[in-house]
Write a protein that binds this DNA or RNA. Structure first.
Lengths: 138, 138
DNA sequence: TTGTAATTGCAAGTAATTTGCGTTTGTGAT
DNA sequence: ATCACAAACGCAAATTACTTGCAATTACAA
């Protein structure tokens, strides 16, 4: 997928296309992995103050332009909302691989339907383990 | 399953059976759902100071007596370590249902094996949606 | 009963995130 | 172009969740 026009994305959702927000979307796009908020903060400190960053993430998440991801760290991660997928996280170095499986998605929907008195609208699946590099190093 | 002898559980893992820890295990046992730390804190404030609670949770998690669960809230949740399972969380009222499916577990293992250069050791799956009560109320 | 390491609680500290508020800026209307 | 106004901004301060240092206490094995 080629890089979207972020100005249009923002305006289409009723937001102003400010330099900070454009830089944020650009950053999340090129990263293509969930990024911890403090890292985003560090990378964007020239264009966006932390408070504004938090407010932007909140607004953009509500508009489903970005997504919050919980990777069992002390801080939240965010990534662009693209096609639905999951993550394989190395618990020693923190590296993340995006993963996807249609079979798995079907199974999750099926399990969700079996839960009584419950309407499934979203789910999160994170795999935790060790990447090759860390296993070898240990 | 009937309530275990928590004193034995603690001592068996090399811990002292202190009143605070016994109360903590008792509470998590009867709750049978992931509990947010601040709520545990509130319920146990008579027997366990917050600092001690955090230290107890850390120690008991390392010994796999309790488990930390991330439910996309600002705070961690903990539950007793019993048979592996997942959760269906109502995003409006926070109610949690425990869920389990062998088929699903197999599928997750299978997907995990397909991730290159990665050894799967754990995973978390949370379903988010609305419980009947909240759908009706809305 | 007693020694000792495990556990505790207070006081203080830190990291992530939020709120209040006055100022600036993007954008649609003139 | 420029104006008007809500959206977005940034500073300062507050809050929440959680951690650390250390001296006092306590469970429990000997």
């Amino acid at each position: 997928m080629s890089q979207p026009n972020f100005k249009e994305v923002l305006q289409g959702a009723g937001f102003k296309a400010t330099p900070g927000r454009l830089a944020l979307l650009e950053l999340l796009w090129v990263q293509d992995k969930p990024m911890p908020v403090p890292m985003i903060e560090e990378k964007l400190k020239r264009v966006l103050n932390p408070v504004t960053l938090y407010r932007a993430l909140e607004a953009l998440e509500a508009a489903d332009i970005v997504q919050r991801v919980d990777l069992q760290h002390r801080h939240a991660h965010y990534e662009m909302s693209k096609t639905h997928h999951h993550h394989a996280v190395c618990t020693s170095c923190g590296t993340v691989e995006n993963i996807h499986s249609d079979e798995l998605e079907e199974m999750i929907q099926k399990v969700g339907k079996k839960v009584s008195r419950f309407t499934l609208s979203a789910h999160s699946l994170e795999l935790f383990g060790s990447c090759n590099t860390c296993v070898t190093a240990a």
